[in-house]
């Protein structure tokens, strides 16, 4: 690694791309995300096919409440920002600062999940279930899949943090952090589409 230009803090300028393994991981992960995007697109398409097939049950306009969905959206978008802070800290070789921001990201992700579970329980009480209608089935498939991705991200970043709790940042772990934050952005981006297509479109009918 001697040919790379080192910064004064002891890490290459982009520690996540400093090794061949790191570069491959990044390329591979971008490819993975594009494949996942198509999977989500399939579920979006399914949802849009059935968004009005409520089978006599409550419609989106009757179910969705803007304050809660807005709160969930705000939480998730802020968590994206905190993961950016974490990566900025990582690139400056500030390990504890990075861990702090990733911990905040995990907490925000967990609270998003809490809100989502609460939301789903509410819907079930109002008669909007997985088996009540095509609308219900496609709604829970799409939003549930996203929720599962958030859960996976929370577990992933937590594992990274615990495993490397006392470890300085180096070119071996930097790609791991970086890829986890990419994943987190991806999951957030999917939520932006869910917010628009499921909730906003749903509320205007």
């Amino acid at each position: 690694m001697s040919t790379l230009d080192f910064k004064a803090n002891g890490l290459p300028a982009h520690p996540e791309k400093a090794t061949q393994e790191g570069r491959a991981k990044l390329v591979g992960f971008w490819l993975y995300m594009s494949a996942e995007a198509v999977l989500f697109a399939t579920f979006f398409g399914t949802f849009m096919t059935f968004r009005n097939s409520v089978n006599g049950g409550p419609t989106g306009a009757e179910l969705f409440a803007i304050p809660m969905v807005f709160t969930a959206t705000a939480i998730l978008l802020v968590s994206s920002l905190t993961s950016v802070f974490a990566i900025m800290a990582m690139q400056r070789n500030l390990a504890s600062k990075m861990r702090f921001w990733f911990a905040v990201t995990v907490l925000l992700g967990a609270s998003f999940l809490g809100l989502e579970v609460y939301e789903f329980v509410e819907y079930v009480h109002e008669g909007h279930t997985f088996t009540s209608s095509p609308f219900g089935s496609s709604f829970y498939t799409l939003v549930g899949f996203h929720g599962a991705h958030v859960l996976f991200g929370v577990l992933w970043i937590s594992t990274l943090l615990l495993r490397n709790i006392n470890r300085p940042i180096d070119t071996y772990v930097a790609p791991k952090y970086y890829v986890a934050s990419l994943y987190w952005h991806f999951v957030d981006l999917v939520w932006v589409f869910i917010f628009t297509i499921v909730y906003l479109f749903g509320m205007v009918g």
Partner: peptide, 24 residues
């Protein structure tokens, strides 16, 4: 990458319909 993922989606729909009584 772009074709097997829709298959994954389609299989999920079929699976949910068979196993969890979805209404697709």
């Amino acid at each position: 990458m772009f074709a097997f993922t829709p298959l994954t989606g389609a299989l999920f729909l079929l699976m949910f319909e068979r196993m969890f009584d979805a209404k697709f």
